[in-house]
Design a protein around this nucleic acid. Structure first.
Length: 801
RNA sequence: GCGGGUGUGGCGGAAUGGCAGACGCAUCAGACUCAAAAUCUGACGGGGGUGACUUCGUGAGGGUUCGAGUCCCUCCACCCGCACCA
């Protein structure tokens, strides 16, 4: 073969052949060992594919191709997470229906992904905007509703004062609207909520049963934020009411010298007649409400507050009457919205007490509470605390909690930072929430047999002036009758957030055309759980947590066979621009994958993105690096002109062949793609040095490289006249014994410094090695030998005085 | 402030506690060429030496060890999250 390597023709050729032969379809052959590899399906944006997409996709494509050659039935699917705001905004701006925008974008993305030669099973493609798909998204919502896990609640939302529309958090940048730059304020609206907090404990505890990379587990745990403590009741002096607080330090109760309530605490209104400075308190509350998130962050270090005069609380443990303050450092959304302040042992309380001259009483000895709050729970001993004196913190916690329970003044309690999931969007391009609002029956689910509740075709999908969903315009869609009592009723006009469709998509791949269930029992039992899921760290506390929640719910409902959806979760680093900054249009450092494919070929792009650096770390793009990978493939192409006969590895190559098979096999599994490719480059260099490669060696080399560069290897396989298709070949085996060199160079050190080398068998015994080593450095052995170290195959170290 | 991550040649990066810098890029030299490109071959951390060699060197400083990029302690810088969660 004398023609030069031309990826343009061979890549198209093999993509067509693979499609025609259905090379990568995952048959429902439930007798074979299965492997379910999953990558996050993309949001088909108008920008087209980003060079960031191929990094994770190629990585799991490599693993999938390898596993197929190892005999697994591999499911590696792809689909489209196509509902969402950018499409809707683009549609509004350009006056094109979002459905059309989505179709166009999906077409472009699919063409781009296909040009990269991924071994996706395209027969299982899913699209979240397809009614046949969102039928089941709505079905799951109804299950949640019927189980009491979907409810409506007044929630503050982000409201753009200029666009007059509710915004997602992601659309608010530094307190202003991302699109128009106008200030964003909080506005209370009735929203659908999902009770993810009901699964808070399971979402933490079951992390022990899955194989996720540590940063993901840590982030999820911190995000859920479970903490153990106690709720304690403080009597409001002169009333029948109690002010309840949550604390993780009930042991410090004797040191509680005042209390603080959040500005939104209901007692401010309830006791306004008893509050002497109500006007002042109200002014503080209004000021706090006006603060934007940005200001709250900025002012976090400087505590503000107002004493509520006329109300006092009684410390239950010593009967002291203590003042109550209001301050925005106490959040209504966590615990009870009120705290007991122990300035001696809490930094925030200490700061507040110092500023307002409140008493600081030390109850845990070990620090200097005049200087700083003492928060060390490991070493302190209780003082000034009556019956707790002398105990350490852990014992004191236990003792006081028991005491509180006995007296009916409190009880142990655990709390979470996790909040319920705001599930409503006042937008058009999302799944309609299948609920009917009946004046008599309340919220009534749309009957299951009426699903999917189709998103109506509308002329005008612009947001309304009053913040209602555009669907509210559609009176003939909105007005309906109650399925329960038959009276006039209205449909819910909110739609679901983008996270809905992506919370269960991995289930639909199993059986994407099933109209009777989200997937058949057989398919679920065979394929679940996902064996390996790779995705971005940015989804750790949103998509990944949401989908685990839905899956756990579906498990409790008997819909899915396993409590966790993903057995293993890994994550890739970002690809940055050549200047080391995040790629963006404004920075002018965006690389378009299409350009790389047309100039260098898909195999080069795949190889480069895998060679760029450690998979889990961010990496900067380098056009020279791309060229280097193309040069590597050119040299691979050149191997065919060195091809000689031979059905077994030649003697001088045998060790290296077995070593490379071993290294590439394990590196692919541990995501060390860069070193796997380096090993293949090194092997290639050896063939060049030698000037020949035999057929056995060529077969192995092509097979090892195939997962990374599938087109060129398949072409060379065919050109060399090897049997069948390379994608159907068997992954090569290595013989551990044959990975070991006959002799190796072993460094000889004297007192830890290298002074010579010996050639010796790697498994030589210690006496032989030490003797040879001493001989090699005999001129330097002038002192008394105190130690002789021998690491087979590595080094000899003679330690002398 | 808290949590997670990262610091190694000119650059991207390799190194189960055991020869630091594999592999690639850039650069330089040689071969080929009228020439250039491409390709092939070789050199390529700093200092010293004609040289075989020698010495220093993995963000900084300590420590453990025969031996530390790797383990421990104290710091520093940068990146990414979270942000008063009682």
């Amino acid at each position: 073969m004398s023609e030069a390597y031309n990826p343009k023709t061979i890549e198209k050729k093999w993509q067509d052949i693979w499609a025609e032969e259905k090379a990568f379809s995952a048959p429902n052959d439930y007798t074979r060992p299965k492997f379910y590899a999953l990558v996050e399906f993309p949001y088909p944006s108008g920008q087209g594919l980003h060079v960031g997409h191929p990094r994770p996709y190629t990585a799991l494509d490599i693993v999938s191709r390898k596993r197929r050659m190892q005999g697994y039935n591999v499911l590696f699917p792809m689909g489209w997470d196509a509902f969402g705001l950018p499409t809707e905004n683009y549609a509004i701006k350009n006056k094109i229906h979002p459905r059309i925008v989505t179709e166009n974008n999906v077409h472009r993305f699919k063409t781009q992904l296909q040009s990269l030669g991924y071994s996706f099973d395209w027969d299982r493609e899913v699209n979240t905007t397809d009614p046949g798909y969102y039928k089941w998204t709505q079905w799951i919502f109804l299950k949640l509703f019927k189980a009491g896990l979907a409810y409506k609640s007044e929630m503050p939302i982000n409201w753009c004062t200029s666009c007059k529309v509710g915004l997602a958090n992601e659309e608010v940048v530094n307190g202003v609207c991302e699109r128009c730059g106008s200030p964003v304020v909080r506005r209370v609206k009735s929203q659908w909520m999902l009770k993810i907090t009901a699964y808070a404990d399971k979402l933490i505890d079951d992390l022990d049963t899955v194989d996720y990379i540590t940063p993901v587990k840590v982030s999820q745990k911190n995000w859920i934020g479970r903490s153990y403590g106690a709720e304690v009741d403080f009597q409001l002096a002169g009333t029948e009411d109690k002010l309840t607080v949550f604390t993780t330090r009930p042991d410090t109760l004797f040191g509680a010298t005042y209390m603080v309530v959040s500005p939104e605490h209901p007692y401010i209104d309830k006791y306004k007649d008893s509050i002497n400075n109500y006007e002042e308190v109200l002014a503080y509350r209004d000021a706090a409400a006006r603060k934007s998130d940005f200001e709250r962050t900025e002012l976090a270090k400087d505590k503000t507050g107002v004493e509520i005069k006329g109300l006092k609380a009684i410390n239950p443990v010593n009967g002291n009457e203590i003042p109550i303050w209001v301050s925005d450092y106490v959040l209504m959304s966590y615990g009870t919205g009120a705290i007991m302040a122990v300035p001696a042992h809490d930094e925030r309380d200490w700061e507040f007490a110092k500023k307002f001259g409140l008493p600081i009483v030390e109850v845990v000895a070990g620090g200097n509470v005049d200087e700083a709050a003492f928060t060390d729970v490991a070493t302190g001993k209780l003082v000034n605390s009556g019956f707790l004196n002398g105990l350490d913190v852990a014992d004191a916690k236990k003792a006081i909690t028991e005491w509180l329970a006995e007296k009916g003044l409190g009880h142990s309690k655990k709390n979470f930072k996790l909040r319920d999931w705001v599930f409503s969007r006042q937008r058009y391009w999302g799944e309609p929430i299948p609920i009917i609002k009946c004046p008599k029956c309340g919220f009534v689910p749309v009957p299951e047999e009426e699903l999917p509740l189709m998103l109506p075709e509308v002329e005008n999908y612009m947001p309304t002036d009053n913040g209602e969903s555009p669907l509210a315009h559609m009176r003939d869609w909105v007005e309906t009758t109650c399925p329960c009592c038959g009276s006039k009723a209205e449909r819910e006009t909110d739609t679901m957030p983008q996270w809905a469709g992506s919370s269960w998509y991995f289930l639909r791949y199993l059986d994407p055309h099933n109209n009777d269930a989200l997937a058949s029992k057989e398919a679920l039992n065979y394929w679940m759980p996902v064996d390996w899921y790779n995705g971005g760290m940015e989804h750790t506390t949103l998509h990944l947590l949401y989908s685990r929640f839905w899956h756990k719910f579906l498990y409790d409902q008997g819909v899915v066979p396993c409590p966790e959806p993903y057995q293993k979760r890994t994550s890739h680093g970002m690809i940055l621009g050549e200047n080391g900054e995040k790629m963006s249009k404004s920075r002018g450092n965006v690389i378009n994958p299409d350009d790389i494919v047309s100039e260098f070929g898909a195999d080069t792009l795949r190889t480069y993105e895998m060679f760029i650096g450690a998979f889990n770390l961010a990496a900067s793009w380098s056009q020279d690096g791309v060229k280097g990978c193309r040069r590597f493939l050119d040299r691979v192409w050149g191997l065919s002109s060195m091809l000689v006969n031979g059905d077994a590895y030649t003697a001088d190559m045998e060790t290296k062949m077995h070593q490379t098979i071993k290294k590439v096999s394990s590196d692919f599994e541990s995501m060390k793609y860069n070193t796997a490719i380096a090993a293949l480059m090194s092997l290639l260099n050896d063939f060049y040095k030698k000037g020949s490669i035999n057929k056995a060696e060529f077969k192995t080399f092509l097979t090892l490289l195939n997962p990374v560069a599938p087109h060129i290897t398949e072409e060379l396989w065919q050109e060399a006249g090897f049997e069948g298709r390379l994608y159907q070949a068997t992954w090569p085996e290595y013989d551990e014994a044959k990975t070991i060199e006959k002799t190796v160079e072993v460094a000889v050190q004297v007192n830890g410094k290298i002074r010579g080398y010996i050639q010796i068998a790697p498994d030589a015994d210690k006496d032989t090695a030490i003797a040879a080593g001493k001989e090699a450095v005999k001129d330097r052995l002038t002192g008394t030998i105190v130690k002789e170290v021998y690491v087979p195959g590595r080094l000899v170290n003679i330690v002398q005085k």
